[in-house]
């Protein structure tokens, strides 16, 4: 005790030397102490914390992106890894490719119609599921299923349901007299296949859209909705003039977000049709995969997948700007 207190009055330097000489501090805690001291500097601590995120972005996002960007102007392919510069040849090629043009149109049709249908059905469902009724919890839980089932399993189930020979839809349909015996070949005809792809995509995305809308609607204070009801606003007016404007920030972000992700998504198409029949249901992402990975033409594949990059970039910038302006408010 006496010794400890006498140490305390000594200059700090001397005290520390004496302490380490007397009883060596374990090396681990000495390192710990040094790191701890380094972390006292805010910038060291800050950069250390953010390092994993930066590393992740550089290695898995930025690097592949620039590689792909370089591929678009080369003749790179799986058989010819040392590629030569070809300028804009790849872009000219794909532009003259009918399947590409079809895929481009399909991408827009697919994205926009999925979004519109999801928004429409999601709104209705959100209101229905927000109402109190018997068994609401069970219905809600069932409703979430498409969202929780892995896409691959969901899509395979669908492809069986839409299969020309085993289709349960056709079996039921023809038995109740909706159409004659074999029934439509859902995935085998151009338009039906496209419709099927969109339907399955909506099936997959609808729960999330609905949950998002439910969250938005619940976020509007009940008092405001009641005030509007007293102000003689009917259901539609309350939705249109009160709820939508109030949750617009959420809606806007959600919409942009899902547009961007739909534009670059190939899962449902690939799992359900692989772009068939005769390459009529490809979207850009699935066609890029087909050309670039399956057929091995890396240059053209990269060109296809980056074709809409400028559009998406603008969308992303708008999105970030908007988020920032909301924060500053």
């Amino acid at each position: 005790m006496a010794r400890a207190s006498s140490e305390r009055v000594m200059p700090a330097e001397a005290g520390r030397e004496r302490a380490s000489a007397a009883a060596p501090v374990p090396i681990v805690s000495r390192i710990g102490g040094a790191v701890g001291q380094l972390f006292e500097h805010e910038w060291v601590f800050g950069y250390t914390m953010i390092a994993p995120a930066i590393l992740y972005i550089v290695l898995l996002v930025a690097y592949p992106f620039f590689v792909a960007l370089r591929f678009t102007v080369t003749s790179a392919s799986v058989s010819e890894p040392i590629a030569s510069f070809v300028g804009l040849r790849n872009f000219v090629d794909i532009w003259n490719d009918d399947i590409f043009r079809r895929a481009l149109i399909n991408t827009f049709v697919f994205t926009i119609s999925s979004q519109v249908i999801q928004a429409f059905l999601g709104t209705i469902l959100a209101f229905l599921l927000l109402r109190p009724f018997r068994g609401r919890r069970v219905v809600r839980a069932l409703f979430i299923i498409p969202f929780t089932v892995p896409v691959a399993i969901g899509a395979i189930t669908w492809s069986w349901m839409l299969n020309p020979q085993y289709s349960v839809l056709n079996w039921v349909g023809s038995h109740i007299g909706l159409f004659p015996a074999p029934g439509p070949n859902w995935l085998g005809e151009e338009q039906l296949a496209m419709i099927s792809v969109i339907v399955v995509n909506v099936w997959r995305g609808l729960p999330f859209t609905t949950i998002l809308l439910m969250a938005g609607i619940t976020a509007v204070p009940q008092e405001i909705i009641e005030a509007a009801a007293l102000d003689a606003a009917g259901f539609f007016r309350r939705w249109n003039d009160i709820i939508v404007p109030i949750i617009a920030p959420i809606l806007f972000i959600a919409l942009l977000f899902s547009f961007v992700s739909q534009f670059t998504d190939m899962t449902v198409v690939w799992l359900l049709t692989r772009g068939n029949p005769v390459n009529t249901t490809h979207v850009l992402a699935s066609y890029a995969f087909e050309v670039g990975i399956v057929s091995g033409d890396l240059g053209r594949g990269a060109a296809i997948s980056l074709f809409l990059f400028p559009v998406l970039l603008v969308a992303a910038i708008v999105m970030l700007r908007y988020l920032k302006s909301q924060q500053l408010d």
Partner: peptide, 28 residues
């Protein structure tokens, strides 16, 4: 409620956040 010819002042005011004062007054 809208046909009872009453007006209510709420505890948290329940103003429409996206409308200015004039629009708030005019809405009903």
């Amino acid at each position: 409620p809208k046909d009872r010819d009453i007006a209510m002042v709420f505890q948290n005011y329940a103003l429409y956040p996206h409308m200015n004062v004039e629009q708030n007054l005019a809405f009903g």
